[in-house]
Structures are given as structure tokens and as C-alpha cells.
């Protein structure tokens, strides 16, 4: 990281020629994106920021940093609790890759702590109600939006598009998975009719939400956001596979589903939730299998990726029960 070039660019972007970088440390996590803790003195006052950029030599598999900046800006404008997006640098010549800077938020996102530590989130039912409100604000963002033009046109039928996308991914992976096919076929037979599209976060789950003692500190990880059926996010958040062992707490392993949906407040078609929860379970199984494939290919030798692949049989066991009950 060329710190002098970064300082020069930040000084210009912030309008403070005297801006000083006091600390720049790589944060852990993020195989695709890199996050850096960036402390500066701006106008004589200490500021705590995060610089987010792509990891070197990573193929584009999700939104670019400029696109993510636009999503964060749209979310913030809609009242979603996100880190304030501050500066975007689309110019690769400054640090070698595009980057953006956002406010640094303090809190806990680690899923096993979030589901077990009742001091987080301002009370369990209150926390999931607040998360429901966050999701409703995200879903209030509707197409067309010139600033989000990179998301493309909304799918004519989000449910069928989701099935097709998972089938393409299974085909690309090349390992036949008849149980997941069974689940996808059940979904296809019972696909709900399309609804007017909204902005879906597409990874709104425990682990991607930062909590503090008071409540929700930030909704993170916007790289998969796109137009779709709002029930996709509700189903992803409530799916059993994202409860991190606290199965009885149906809203993300944190609290009751009723409180989450009450907080959400927008009309919910309860009949669609089992459909999207099954889709969520299959989607996670496909992702888990892909993660193990990365390990098996030798591309990234990792015990964590290897063990993630062993989640697939359990997910498949759930898929069969859910397909039966659909």
C-alpha cells in the first residue's frame, strides 16, 4: 500500500491538505475484499475509518468497490444502519486498485457470539425487531434507480431466476447432487408468482450484521445485493442453516420469528417463506460445496474450506424434509 499516494488522495478528497494518516492496519477476513483500519487526523480531529479494496489478483465474482459504494450510499439514504460511506476512488493508479473509505463501526458480528450473548443487540426480541426494520428500509429501495443501474433489469420472475442460477452453479461445479436437484425441482413445481421487485441484500444473516449493546450497529457485506423478491431476504435470515445452533430462535438464531416479522412491518406472504427458506438451504449447500472445491482444487488449501464441504450432507438432509413439507 502506497501510503504517501493514499494520503495525498485523501487530503484532496477531504479538502484538508494537512490530513495525516496515523495508522493503517490490515484487518482479518475477506478472501475477496481487503479491509484496512485507517486512522487519520482530519482538521486536527482523530477519525477512525475503514478502507475497502479488492484483494490482488482476484477475479470479479461480486460487485466492484465503486458499485458497493453506490449500494452503501443508497442504503444510508434509505435510513439503513450502515457505515457512512465517505470517499470513493475509482482510479486504480493511487493504490493499485479502486477503493472506498467508510466510517469504522464498533461492534460484534461473529455469529456464535451474536446468537449466544444476550447482552448484544439491546435484547433478543428487540434486536430481531430492529433487524426487521432494517430489512424493510432496504426493501423500500425500488427500481428503477439510475444510481444502481449496474444491477441491471430486475428478473421477470425472481423465484425462477434463483432456481436457474443455482442449477447453472451446480452444472459449473460438475459434481452431481441429486438431493439438491430434488429440492430445486420441488421449488420449481411450487414457485410463487412474481412480486414487484425490491432491492434485496442477498446475504442478510447473522454474521453479516454487527451488533452492540444498544442494538444494530451496522448491516454489512453488500456485495451480492440485487433486485428480487423481498421474501428471499426474509427466508435467508430465518433459514435453519443460519441459526448457528440456536435452532429454536427462528430469526437468525437470535430471537423469535414473530418479533422479526413484526419489526419488518411490510406485508409478508407467509406461504412464501418456506419456499425461500428451502431455496436458502440449497443455496448455502451449493456455496459450501464450492468452498470445498476450492480446497480440493489446490487453489486454496484450507481446513476451514475442507470442513465447510462436510456441511453439505446435513443441509441435504434438511432439504429433503423441507421439500417434503413444501
Amino acid at each position: 500500500m502506497d501510503e504517501a499516494a493514499l494520503r495525498g488522495w485523501l487530503a484532496q478528497a477531504s479538502g484538508d491538505a494537512g490530513l495525516r494518516i496515523t495508522a493503517l492496519t490490515r484487518l482479518s477476513g475477506g478472501a475477496i475484499q481487503q479491509n484496512w483500519a485507517l486512522d487519520v487526523e482530519l482538521g486536527g480531529a482523530a477519525q477512525r475509518w475503514v478502507l475497502r479494496t479488492d484483494a490482488p489478483a482476484v477475479l470479479a465474482v461480486s460487485h466492484t468497490r465503486p458499485q458497493e459504494f453506490s449500494l452503501l450510499s443508497a442504503a444510508r439514504e434509505a435510513g439503513v444502519t450502515v457505515p457512512a460511506p465517505l470517499f470513493l476512488c475509482a482510479d486504480s493508479s493511487v493504490i493499485g486498485r479502486p477503493f472506498f473509505v467508510m466510517a469504522r463501526v464498533e461492534g460484534v458480528a461473529a455469529p456464535h457470539r451474536v446468537v449466544k450473548d444476550a447482552t448484544l443487540g439491546g435484547g433478543r426480541a428487540a434486536c430481531v425487531a430492529a433487524l426487521g426494520r432494517e430489512l424493510a428500509r432496504i426493501h423500500a429501495i425500488r427500481p428503477p434507480r439510475a444510481d444502481l443501474g449496474f444491477l441491471g433489469d430486475p428478473p421477470a420472475d425472481a423465484a425462477l431466476a434463483a432456481i436457474a442460477a443455482l442449477r447453472r452453479r451446480l452444472d459449473a461445479a460438475g459434481t452431481p447432487r441429486p438431493v439438491l436437484e430434488w429440492g430445486l425441482r420441488a421449488l420449481e413445481r411450487k414457485a410463487p408468482p412474481p412480486l414487484p421487485p425490491v432491492l434485496c441484500h442477498n446475504d442478510f444473516r447473522t454474521g453479516n450484521i454487527m451488533l452492540d449493546a444498544q442494538g444494530v450497529a451496522a448491516v454489512l457485506d453488500w456485495e451480492f445485493a440485487g433486485w428480487g423478491d423481498p421474501h428471499a431476504d426474509l427466508g435467508w435470515f430465518c433459514a435453519k442453516c443460519w441459526r448457528f445452533g440456536q435452532v429454536a430462535q427462528e430469526a437468525g438464531g437470535i430471537g423469535p420469528r414473530d418479533a422479526f416479522l413484526a419489526g419488518y412491518g411490510l406485508p409478508v406472504d407467509a406461504g412464501r417463506l418456506p419456499w425461500w427458506e428451502l431455496l436458502a438451504t440449497i443455496r448455502w449447500a451449493v456455496i459450501a460445496a464450492d468452498q470445498a472445491a476450492r480446497h480440493l482444487s489446490g487453489q486454496e488449501r484450507s481446513l476451514e474450506l475442507a470442513l465447510t464441504g462436510h456441511m453439505v450432507p446435513e443441509l441435504e438432509w434438511d432439504v429433503l424434509a423441507m421439500a417434503e413439507a413444501l
Partner: peptide, 12 residues
């Protein structure tokens, strides 16, 4: 399919 999933889950 149930047996296929169950037997693999017995290990995983």
C-alpha cells in the same frame, strides 16, 4: 435420496 443423505451425514 434419504438414505444417501443420511448415510453421508452419519459421517459428516
Amino acid at each position: 435420496l434419504r438414505d444417501h443423505a443420511r448415510l453421508r451425514a452419519t459421517i459428516s
